[in-house]
Amino acid sequence: MSTSLGAQSLFSKKLEGRVYSKEGDVAATTVQNISTNRATITDIDGFFQIVANLSDTLIISAVQFKEQEIVVTREILQQRMLHVQMEDALTELDEVVVTPYNLTGDITKDINIVKTDAVVTSSTLGLPNAYVLPITKAERELFEATSGGGLIPLNPILNGISGRTKMLKKRIARNNLYSRTERVKAFYPDSLFQSDLKIPEEKIDDLLYFCEVDPEFQTIVDTHDRLKIWEYIRRKSIAYRENNELD
């Protein structure tokens, strides 16, 4: 009797399994034994049970997953639980070429075909102060600190006595200097500082600070001549390397 049951367990059993996926949405996945025309669905955690015989074919499917086909082997029947990882189903569409307005793909020709609305901005409308940059937070705070109403405006007096006005002016000057130096740095790739000036990448900002404390640097930056600015940085880099023993 025991031999008969043992043999039966090798060829047929109520198979327990679990379906899982990266997304975790595995509830109500269909598990079908197409060899016996039996089917079940998984619970909210993906667990299922289904009677399976050796060499039966299981089809596991759901709308959101790619269909899985599993042939029941002796090893599967001997497992305590069958684990099945599902893959997300990707909806792929056939390639479609859309050519509205009879476009040719040649921009020099298509630009005369496509009609676009005029770009509306403050500058195209001719509004006053269209090119004025918005004031920074520090500039706004300075304005508030140095203005006030009434016969005797108290804000300028109190902020002057406390030193807040002087502090805000220094902050604006520092911010302007930093912004200007950042613009200069953006002119040239870091690799140029490293290859041409022999400045390590982690020292580039320090070199530019070494330059910006020199009043001559600001004058040269105001010329917007990138070659002249680079030549100045190159000369300063020689002194910087000597001071920091980089040679």
Rank of each mutant, 00 (worst) to 15 (best):
166 K>I: 00
203 K>G: 06
57 T>P: 12
155 N>M: 05
24 G>K: 02
213 V>L: 04
188 Y>F: 14
68 Q>D: 11
157 I>L: 10
16 E>A: 09
156 P>T: 13
202 E>H: 14
103 L>D: 05
103 L>M: 14
81 M>F: 00
175 N>K: 02
74 R>Q: 11
184 V>H: 08
170 K>Y: 07
22 K>I: 15
163 G>A: 07
175 N>A: 06
68 Q>A: 09
164 R>K: 12
86 M>Q: 13
64 Q>W: 03
89 A>D: 09
93 L>F: 01
171 R>P: 07
187 F>N: 14
218 Q>Y: 04
44 I>L: 07
188 Y>H: 12
118 A>V: 14
149 G>L: 04
167 M>A: 15
180 R>N: 07
237 S>T: 10
16 E>N: 10
215 P>R: 05
136 T>D: 03
232 Y>D: 03
4 S>N: 02
6 G>Q: 06
157 I>S: 01
245 E>V: 15
144 E>M: 04
77 L>D: 10
54 L>T: 12
43 D>N: 15
173 A>K: 09
12 S>V: 00
24 G>V: 00
148 G>E: 12
232 Y>T: 04
101 Y>I: 12
240 Y>D: 09
171 R>Y: 04
109 K>S: 05
41 I>D: 12
129 N>I: 04
155 N>W: 02
126 G>A: 03
48 F>Q: 04
96 V>A: 10
212 E>M: 13
36 T>F: 15
61 S>P: 02
212 E>G: 10
152 I>Y: 14
66 K>S: 01
83 H>Y: 05
67 E>W: 03
29 T>E: 09
27 A>R: 08
69 E>T: 15
184 V>C: 01
233 I>G: 08
166 K>H: 12
99 T>L: 00
140 R>C: 01
107 I>L: 14
61 S>A: 07
20 Y>G: 03
85 Q>E: 15
242 E>H: 06
96 V>R: 11
44 I>Y: 12
199 I>C: 12
106 D>H: 13
33 N>G: 09
101 Y>N: 11
36 T>P: 03
211 C>F: 00
199 I>Y: 05
223 T>R: 06
83 H>S: 01
146 T>P: 05
130 A>W: 05
133 L>I: 06
76 I>L: 10
86 M>V: 00
65 F>C: 05
125 L>C: 01
184 V>G: 05
120 V>T: 07
18 R>K: 08
224 H>M: 11
211 C>M: 01
155 N>R: 12
215 P>H: 09
161 I>E: 11
213 V>T: 14
26 V>G: 09
10 L>W: 00
4 S>E: 08
176 N>L: 03
201 E>Y: 13
207 L>H: 08
155 N>Q: 12
